Amino acid sequence: GKRLNIQLKKGTEGLGFSITSRDVTIGGSAPIYVKNILPRGAAIQDGRLKAGDRLIEVNGVDLVGKSQEEVVSLLRSTKMEGTVSLLVFRQED
């Protein structure tokens, strides 16, 4: 696979993607993946982020050990017109 650095500018329609966690172990944390890209928002305008990408970092914060809720609040904490920096891991087909 490969790592991608993606910067998304948060506009009025938001970042435009949803996340999910897979393989949750009890008391553990699961990897966070991009669930889908919404028809409006920064992600589809940028065009690089894809469903199935694994989020590794948000704005330089390592997501290991973070819950899905914590990751959502990290993403939401970005101000309007601010930039969210994502490091994602993509499995090659």
Rank of each mutant, 00 (worst) to 15 (best):
G14Y: 02
F89Q: 13
V24L: 10
Q7E: 14
L63S: 02
R22V: 10
I6E: 01
F17Q: 03
Q91V: 15
T12C: 09
S77G: 14
E92I: 12
A51L: 05
I44D: 07
K9L: 13
L4T: 04
A43Q: 03
Q45T: 12
I32A: 04
G82T: 12
R76F: 12
L38Q: 13
D23W: 06
N36W: 02
R22A: 13
E69F: 09
G1N: 15
L86S: 01
R22Q: 13
Q7F: 12
Q68V: 14
K35W: 05
N59R: 02
E81C: 06
D46W: 05
S77M: 08
D46M: 02
D46F: 02
N5F: 14
N36G: 10
E13I: 06
E92Y: 06
L86T: 03
Q68N: 13
G82P: 05
Q68T: 14
I56E: 03
K2G: 07
N36R: 14
G41I: 01
V72S: 12
L8D: 00
E13D: 14
S85N: 12
E70G: 06
R54V: 09
E69W: 06
G28N: 15
S18V: 05
G41Q: 02
Y33M: 12
G82V: 08
S29V: 09
S73E: 15
I19L: 10
R90W: 00
G47S: 04
N5V: 14
R3D: 10
Q91T: 13
L75N: 01
F17N: 00
I19T: 05
D93F: 13
L75C: 06
E13V: 04
G11Q: 13
S85W: 06
V61A: 06
V71Q: 01
R76A: 15
I44A: 12
N36A: 12
D93T: 08
V24F: 12
L63Y: 00
G41L: 01
D93L: 13
D62R: 10
G60H: 06
V88T: 02
T20H: 09
P39M: 07
G82E: 14
L63N: 01
K35Y: 06
K2N: 15
G82N: 15
D53I: 00
V61Q: 10
G60N: 07
V61H: 11
D62N: 13
K50P: 00
D46A: 02
V24M: 08
F17H: 00
T12K: 15
V72T: 12
I37K: 00
I19R: 01
R3W: 08
G52F: 02
L8R: 00
L15M: 05
G28S: 05
V61S: 07
K66G: 03
P31M: 12
Q68W: 10
G65E: 06
D53L: 01
G1D: 13
T78R: 06
Q68G: 07
R90K: 05
S73W: 07
K2C: 15
T78V: 13
K9I: 13
V64A: 14
V88D: 03
K50C: 06
G11F: 05
V71A: 07
R90S: 04
K79H: 15
S21P: 06
T12P: 14
L4D: 03
E70Y: 10
L55M: 05
D93G: 08
I44Q: 10
L63I: 09
R76T: 14
S29L: 11
T78F: 07
A30I: 06
D93K: 10
S77N: 11
A51R: 07
T25C: 15
K2Y: 08
E69V: 08
A43K: 04
S29E: 14
V84P: 02
S67Q: 09
L86M: 05
Q68M: 07
V24K: 06
G52Q: 03
L63T: 11
G1I: 15
D53G: 03
V88I: 09
E69C: 12
D23L: 08
L15N: 00
L49I: 04
S18I: 10
L74R: 04
S85P: 02
K66Y: 07
L55E: 03
S85D: 10
S21Y: 07
S18C: 12
G1Y: 15
L86C: 01
N5D: 13
P31Q: 10
Q7V: 13
F89P: 02
K79V: 09
K50F: 04
S67R: 12
L55A: 00
R48P: 01
T25N: 09
D23K: 06
L75P: 01
V84N: 03
L74Q: 06
L8Q: 00
E57W: 04
L74D: 04
E69P: 07
D23H: 09
S29Y: 09
R54L: 08
T25L: 09
R48V: 04
G47Q: 04
R3Q: 08
L74Y: 05
R54H: 06
T20P: 01
R48N: 09
S18Y: 04
F17G: 00
I19W: 03
G82H: 10
N59C: 04
I6M: 04
S21W: 08
I26A: 08
S73V: 08
G82F: 07
S18N: 10
G41C: 02
L4S: 03
L15G: 01
L4F: 15
N36V: 07
R48L: 04
S18K: 06
T25V: 06
L38G: 08
D23I: 08
D53Y: 02
K50W: 05
S21L: 07
L55R: 02
S73M: 11
